[in-house]
Design a protein around this nucleic acid. Structure first.
Lengths: 132, 132
DNA sequence: CTCGGTGCAAACGTTTTGCAGAGCA
DNA sequence: TGCTCTGCAAAACGTTTGCACCGAG
């Protein structure tokens, strides 16, 4: 891998992902930083997110939406996404190695990891729907 | 929902998804049908895949690749994708309702479903790598 | 001075959409 | 006839990339 320099932009991109409670999209990171760094470009955000993922500092997670989201919490954990409003939250479950073994038995694939993603309705949207 | 007509194109799109062992992308379905239906357009394939998903006849599944894939098997099951060649295969595991309950306890979301996706290396690629 | 980082804009691959015409019920 | 389906092409969308310049080491 290429040796990376310290970079201001990469640092603030990283901080934004880690600090933000909801796992942000690239677009969100861009919008968030733009006021403070008016010269920032979206390409740089994508480039730095890519570098950070490659360095194992953040993870890319899929979501119901089209856009990728990024997660600064590297502890193994799952996610639940609200099918109504799209909000995404962490779920911490113990990693079940038995699933990998079972999957290997069935498929012959050498399993390296699994991801469990939940779909549901968040507390806020439950309230909103109840009061309809 | 709008009342849908029977449609030849929708039928053949459906058949292609269901019959194909590997879960095809929209592009693949298009390429597969084009020789037999030269006037077919990619827009129609996308539209029909969308309608079929909406009708619950097929599922859209995420993959490591950029393009969505579609799955004509509606039994609840998981998938494993090869991180080397991208091949995708079904995995049948019993649905563990306990996971949904645990996720609900942790997040407060009303869980409607979960998906387990495995990443691994397929038998073919294992052989190829071993012989390197 | 060298090489990585950046901004900008163009390009990319996938998917959606507006429109006018075709065709089933 | 009415309404859905279709082909076509353009556009939308998230993302990547080529380029020239900037700046840290």
């Amino acid at each position: 891998m290429v040796v990376r320099r310290q970079s201001k932009m990469r640092q603030v991109v990283y901080d934004t992902v880690v600090e933000h409670p909801v796992h942000p999209t690239a677009e969100y990171v861009y919008e968030k930083l733009k006021p403070q760094y008016p010269s920032l470009s979206l390409g740089t955000v994508y480039r730095n997110l890519g570098v950070l993922v490659e360095q194992g500092l953040i993870r890319k997670i899929e979501s119901l939406d089209a856009a990728d989201r990024f997660d600064g919490n590297m502890e193994p954990h799952s996610h639940v996404q609200c099918s109504v409003c799209g909000s995404l939250q962490d779920i911490f479950l113990s990693y079940d190695k038995g699933l990998d073994a079972a999957a290997n038995r069935e498929s012959g694939y050498a399993i390296t990891e699994h991801n469990i993603s939940f779909v549901g309705i968040c507390p806020d949207c439950q309230r909103t729907q109840a009061s309809d």
